[in-house]
Simulated assay, not measured.
Amino acid sequence: MARMATHLITGAGSGIGAAVARRLHARGDDLVLLARDAGRAKELAEAYPGARTLVGDLATPDRLSWAFSHQSLPDRLDSLLHIAGVVALAPVGDLTPKTWRHQLDVNLLAPAELTRLLLPQLRLSQGHVVFVNSGAGLSAHAEWAAYAASKHGLKALADALRHEEHANGVRVTSVYPGRTASPMQAKVHQQEGKEYDASRWIDPESVATTILTALDLPRDAEINDLTVRPGR
């Protein structure tokens, strides 16, 4: 009998992460869902019956190794899906080190540390690391300096990892969605002082489709970079 694929997902609680988790869960794949605390883990376990949870706070990447040492990690991992993220907009003149650090920790350092900790399992399965980046990972606009810097860094992490792990059979994909209808997007509009109309932006399900396409691609190819823009 074929072994079920196992995916570790960050950000499964909402937006793109929830859409991806729903799709993988519906087709019977095994899920390991990262939660920031025990309460959140309980919510995710109830939302996805049969899924395992792993508790670790992406806002404190230095503590992830310690947190995981007290829990059981999967023996093999077919994909590591970095989908969680935070955003706080402000002009450079108003950005404090605390605001910079929080976005860099969650959006860049935590994915780097998670990848480091799980690479042995990914190499064993010749697995796939997917970084859900952002259009801000390719260009930065006014008030987006800290977030865009974290996402530019995430692109560098993905590009370097792809070169390093190619010989081990580990595939690496960066997905750069434009504005996607999600709680994060609602928050961005609030920060921008704009009215939020979800129908104007990409449905998270559409981004999930692109991620599953990358995951399901036959072994003779890999999607390195995928930019997804609103179609209207």
Rank of each mutant, 00 (worst) to 15 (best):
A21H: 08
A26M: 06
L24P: 03
L34S: 05
D29E: 06
D30I: 02
R27V: 13
G17A: 07
K42G: 09
E46A: 15
S14E: 13
Y48E: 01
A35D: 07
D57V: 13
G39M: 11
V32R: 00
L31G: 03
E43H: 14
T60R: 15
A26Q: 11
L31D: 01
G15T: 05
A21I: 10
L44D: 02
V20L: 11
G28T: 11
G50F: 02
L58K: 06
H25N: 03
H25L: 01
L44Y: 07
Y48P: 01
L34N: 09
R22F: 05
T60D: 14
E46P: 00
L31K: 02
A51F: 07
A26F: 07
T53K: 11
D57C: 11
R40L: 06
R40H: 15
R23C: 02
D57N: 15
D37V: 07
G39Y: 08
G15Y: 04
E43G: 03
L33S: 10
K42N: 14
A38K: 11
A19N: 00
R27A: 05
R22E: 14
T53W: 13
V32S: 04
R23S: 12
D37I: 11
L24I: 12
P49D: 04
D57T: 11
R23Y: 00
E46G: 09
K42L: 13
L24N: 06
K42C: 07
H25A: 03
L33D: 05
A41P: 01
L31F: 08
G28W: 11
D57W: 12
P49S: 03
I16M: 08
T60F: 13
L58Y: 08
L54S: 10
A41S: 05
R36E: 14
H25F: 04
R22W: 08
A18P: 00
D37P: 00
A38W: 10
G39S: 14
